[in-house]
Design a protein around this nucleic acid. Sequence first.
DNA 1: ATGAAAGCGCTAACAA
DNA 2: TTGTTAGCGCTTTCAT
Lengths: 337, 337
Amino acid sequence: MHRSRPTIRDVAREAGVSHQTVSRVINESADVLPETRARVEAAIETLGFRPSAIARSMAHGRTNTLACIAPNLTDYTLASVIEGAEIEARQNGYFLLSSSANDPEAFRALVDELVGHRRVDGLIVINPYMDERYQAIPENFPVVFVGAKSHDKSICSVSLDDEKAAYDATKHLISIGHRQIALVTGPMEEDCSRDRSAGYARALDEAGIPVDLTMTIEGDWSATSGQDALLSLAEQGRLPSAIFAQNDRMALGVLHTARDMGLRVPEQLAVIGVDDMPLSSYFDPPLTTMHQDMPRIGLEATRMLLKVIDRLIEQCSQMKLSAQLIIRQSTCNKGGD
Amino acid sequence: MHRSRPTIRDVAREAGVSHQTVSRVINESADVLPETRARVEAAIETLGFRPSAIARSMAHGRTNTLACIAPNLTDYTLASVIEGAEIEARQNGYFLLSSSANDPEAFRALVDELVGHRRVDGLIVINPYMDERYQAIPENFPVVFVGAKSHDKSICSVSLDDEKAAYDATKHLISIGHRQIALVTGPMEEDCSRDRSAGYARALDEAGIPVDLTMTIEGDWSATSGQDALLSLAEQGRLPSAIFAQNDRMALGVLHTARDMGLRVPEQLAVIGVDDMPLSSYFDPPLTTMHQDMPRIGLEATRMLLKVIDRLIEQCSQMKLSAQLIIRQSTCNKGGD
DNA sequence: ATGAAAGCGCTAACAA
DNA sequence: TTGTTAGCGCTTTCAT
């Protein structure tokens, strides 16, 4: 099965033409007599010839492969971005290599392998500002950031409009009468958490509600940190009437603890999250949240990256997609779903 | 940035040696004078040379890339297998290309690209017996199946010991006094569902409980199908005292509907699932389940695949990993967590 | 419209 | 120990 694969020259011999003509045929070049083409195609058929992608890459100086680096591959939001990116990549004749990198060191090593050895034509980096990892990316290599708008204007990015999503979420709580609204954030070193906090503050401001910093608690995206947040608010005797958790997992932790504490949701405590993760409609009660279209983010990132690779992008774009409010019972009893 | 990358010959010129010597240095061949080596390494340094992975592949006839094909990349169990596989692959100097294929046609096209064009050295296929997709895999190409033991003895596979997991789950229910135990299966065309059904039946048999087929309902792994299952049992007036759902999502659907129906869990209805998906300890009540180590399955599959590629596997192995019972409150009030 | 020659960047086989 | 000569399988000139 190893040395048996026919090459372009075997086909040429079989068809009685030069290997170059075979190349023309498989590349659908116009300048081939229909008759010759037919002969070559027949030879390809009989020999079962398939062009080697590697040889092509070698000659072209292109791998037709992209890579997507994420903190991990199992988190639903990340996996969704990756899946969206993978599908769009394949649609355009590319493959997508997805890898996880926990820490800056792993990230650096990965980029070094991928870019240094020219294994891929471009890179999608999810959460590039996490632990300063973006610094490991070489300049002038095609890259698109996902999950945070790039600080560097020369790098493209696609992300959720975090500020607006948070603003809308907070506004929803305000619109149904809440004025004591606590905030559970993601790690504040992530842009995303900061932007969502800003949106929260803007909504409060607009409503003339002073921002009470003791009502803001930093979490780490985990359900456990959501639990801890509610517990610590309770301990301080500062129970709010509503909580905006910056993601659904933390919101779930809040719901869980509220149940343990005997708080009725939404009557005594309204809860809203961000993500619309699968099963969030199965939480108890079903969770009101800001839906974000992760596969779409992956798709747009890939499109952008392909443009960068083909150098047909004028100036770098920073795309922001909007989240959509999904009202369920964790904020309103009459809420749909 | 394109034609500027130095090659092995540039380095050779710079160091005043032949390009072959450079090759020897970067491949850590023994037969190079320390002095020469130093000169070459200095040249590599000054020029910033990095060997091209493609050229290497070209010369070796190896891509150092594996592919993993799954029905999708977002399902937690699948993503976990992939992540485990990816990490193990990198540990061994390989990259992992993961792709999703919904239907047999997409699967066929994907395999054709990957294998036909020799883009990868080996394949990991998750759920190979889904819609007969395994038929699209060419013979003699290195493959490992995940999620179902291979019917073909010449193909390696790694999977959960589904029969035993189901047996243990059912036995747990029996041991706490249940005798009317309903079963919610995955799609019966999947081996995994059939094996889990067999384990369920064996446990009942052993306990002298006749298997009542009206108590078995086929689902599709979704939470919704778990809901439907419980509803249909209720409609038939055949409410069991316990339900074994073949995965956690369906178990969650059951819990949800039980709540809607006013059934107390576990007093009036005990529920057990399989997977131990994240957040299953946050369900209401926390879900008793059979924990399976998906990353480990991915890791073992990769190891096996690498052995197959290197032809250092004597005869094909069919590895089965065991699941572990995690008792939470959905079956026992006193159950830990 | 087709073919011949050269080259992509590396490794392998042989020679010196 | 080092260098020379051929490839790996394809594409890209440039002839014809």
